[in-house]
Design a binder for these strands. Structure first.
Lengths: 309, 309
DNA sequence: AGCTTTCAATCGGTTTCATCGATAATGCTG
DNA sequence: CAGCATTATCGATGAAACCGATTGAAAGCT
């Protein structure tokens, strides 16, 4: 069987992406004539109509088969890139661009420690950061816009995960709260309290609810008109005597409290209530070994203040 | 990023397959010098050592990275072939080579009816047959040696399945057996009988055991030294008064009884004990639509004697 | 309607590179 | 050391990928 050339497939997906011969050609760094001829050659070689000819309208129109082939061309090109990328990763591990996604309840507290360490350990690594909710990060990972995630387990998605550390929960209280007299706070003691958590979508909220055995949505937030969008906001709300909250230890060692009139006590319960911090990447990623090699550095930054996983 | 050419990848996998430059080159229909130069160019382009040079011993030795790249090259080539194959299937459906796997409890009874019908309906289809146990067929499907399976559900494996028909079980009895007086035989009536089934590995055995609610291995066979390897043998054993057995209706309409002194009665039970005949192919196979188009012809051949699914 | 603009296809010329055949280099064997 | 098997290298050749310019065709504007 005569295989289509990767070049031709690039032309095809570029045209699908840009919907315009000239711009697609520019994206492929060839002239329009070359791209046009290449696509015609591809159609002839496959003996299949890929785009509607003749009715030269606003933008190129793909036939159903053409769309199907665009999708298959994408995966074929990705597979070819995986070959080259595997070789590149083996030749020069932990260098080049790395697009890292981090969730908002990790990033602000870990990155200030992690980034300098990584810059020193892997000076050739060019780290692009994106902070977003778990769902969006996972989506970005799956469609190739991100290479690596730093998030909290459990999380849904088809990815390989590498647990790094346990991140236990602490109860944050106003300084004169009656629970402040205890060394640690059992989960059962939260029952009568007004527990405030981050708004829906933050995995920390789900993890906290799971850790405390709460049914979803019991913790007051939206009903009361509170919309805590960051842990810093939550701390301010605790300081304002609006209620109590749970904070991951990472946030505490990250200095979230500052000089707020808020104190914390470990949350006490069976199997140490908390979340698990982890790295995640696409299954069979060419750079999987590389990412796993990154783990010790991240774990070291984590463990400057968080208990071992 | 500069992608490796499919040609280079072909050279690589051919060398891995043949372990010999000359033979690999012949398999690629090029001269040895071309293949050698191509591999050197690939190594240079990827800036990676793929084979152990210098210690020119018996057969080429791949570096660990080389082996990894061979595997990735295989999937990349398969993805490229999928592009071409999709186009080919759209251009000319149900033509060309089709490697079909069939299980032994379907093949002999269905193929005599199915093959002539397919030859007539799709004269350009070149059908290669392989008869084997479900496990091996599924393995063959998954690694690409087979394109399409005709088997009985439930079956394990990662594949897309298309149920075609229900194939109810019948009880086969010696002519003077005391159960012969009934119009149909309830599952409970099998309790006191010596039930003989195919040897282990045949899915029909598992399906029969499941349909009858038998724990695995209760039906006598190996313990008694019987090793029934085909339904025809089983019928002979029933005729010889060694016990009774279960036969799928497909076998009956396929004429398995001939003029044996054996009679059959429908097996009666909740949700009609039997198996489901189905087609199966690789998920995202380029020819999936084609295979589904084949289903009516197969179902027609099945339904010449088997109840609708 | 007539003009301009935009866009894709076509054409001729240039260059690159995959391939071939032949030959050299290497290592093993008798 | 001669002979054999196997892989790397070299120079020549031909196909095809690419470019720049041009043509053809449809849409928009006045």
């Amino acid at each position: 069987m005569l295989l289509p050339s990767p070049q031709q497939l690039r032309y095809l997906v570029a045209l699908a992406d840009h919907g315009h011969f000239g711009r697609a050609a520019a994206a492929c760094a060839v002239t329009q004539s070359t791209l046009s001829a290449g696509l015609i050659a591809l159609e002839r070689q496959l003996a299949a109509g890929l785009l509607e000819r003749g009715t030269a309208v606003k933008r190129p129109v793909f036939t159903p088969l053409g769309l199907e082939l665009v999708a298959r061309a994408r995966t074929a090109l990705a597979a070819l890139e995986a070959v080259a990328e595997t070789a590149a990763a083996a030749r020069d591990p932990l260098s080049g661009p790395l697009r890292l996604g981090v969730i908002p309840t990790i990033g602000p507290f870990l990155l200030p420690r992690l980034m300098p360490a990584l810059r020193q350990a892997y000076p050739r690594l060019r780290l692009w950061l994106r902070e977003d909710l778990t769902d969006r990060l996972v989506a970005g990972l799956e469609n190739g816009r991100l290479d690596l995630l730093l998030l909290a387990l459990p999380a849904a998605g088809t990815m390989e995960t590498l647990p790094l550390a346990q991140d236990p929960f602490h109860v944050a209280l106003p300084r004169d709260h009656h629970l402040a007299s205890r060394d640690s706070v059992p989960i059962s003691a939260l029952a009568g309290e007004r527990l405030m958590l981050l708004e829906d979508g933050h995995c920390l909220r789900a993890h906290a609810e799971a850790a405390c055995g709460l049914p979803r949505g019991i913790a007051s937030n939206s009903d009361e008109g509170f919309a805590a969008t960051s842990l810093h906001t939550l701390v301010q709300m605790v300081a304002g005597n609006l209620g109590i909250t749970l904070l991951p230890q990472l946030a505490l060692t990250g200095g979230i409290l500052g000089d707020s009139p808020v104190i914390t006590r470990p949350l006490e319960g069976s199997n140490s209530p908390g979340r698990i911090l982890a790295l995640a990447w696409r299954p069979r990623s060419p750079r999987a070994a590389e990412f796993a090699g990154l783990a010790p550095a991240v774990a070291a930054a984590l463990n400057e203040g968080v208990g071992h996983g």
